[in-house]
Amino acid sequence: MGLVVLGLAVARGGIPVLDGLSFSVPTGSALILRGPNGIGKTTLLRTLAGLQPPLAGTVTGADEDAAYASHADGVKAPLSVTENLAFWAEVYGRNLPQDVFAAFDLEALRDRAAGTLSSGQTRRLGLARLGVIGRSVLFLDEPTNSLDAFSVRLFADWLRDRHLAAGGIAVIATHIDLGIDAPILELSPYVAAPDASGGSDEAFL
């Protein structure tokens, strides 16, 4: 049935930023979010992932199956690459799939402490978490930050061939072309009006 969003309005710090968003993402496909800095892409993704309540509207098809990846990786520097991934596998109650190391080019880094990785390698480790936890609806915030062209292609391949091909869904905020065949949602038309209702300051105006 996929992800269905109806009349969604989201707020950052109690101020409405996006208003009247409606879209749906069928299973096995992705959606790219575009918009200038500060428009509320992160806020939208956090709301979709259930980290903050929406001002209005509904999100269906996400709650139990969703995973969120922020632009921070959540990687623990003192732990090795394998330990980092094994931790998330256990939290999600799964076994650590061995093919994930190859998919994210971490094979050679398995036993390195995550603190000694370069920022691109750390990012790959952060993304590999998505391959470990087995969630079907992914909300990705700038997943390709600090990745080189090769790694971007690696990630796009994983997303297309493993995740989406298995009936997964992905909503991605990104500025670069991932090379995935996905519709693009431009957020600029949905910017909330300065007098949009629902903000926490509303009672004071």
């Binding site: 992932a49 980290l51 969703a66 990786d73 939290v91």
Partner: peptide, 16 residues
């Protein structure tokens, strides 16, 4: 520490 490296929102969206 979990707040700084971004694990906290990830833990919050985990099944735990």
């Amino acid at each position: 520490l979990d707040h700084e490296d971004g694990s906290l929102p990830l833990l919050a969206t985990a099944p735990l």
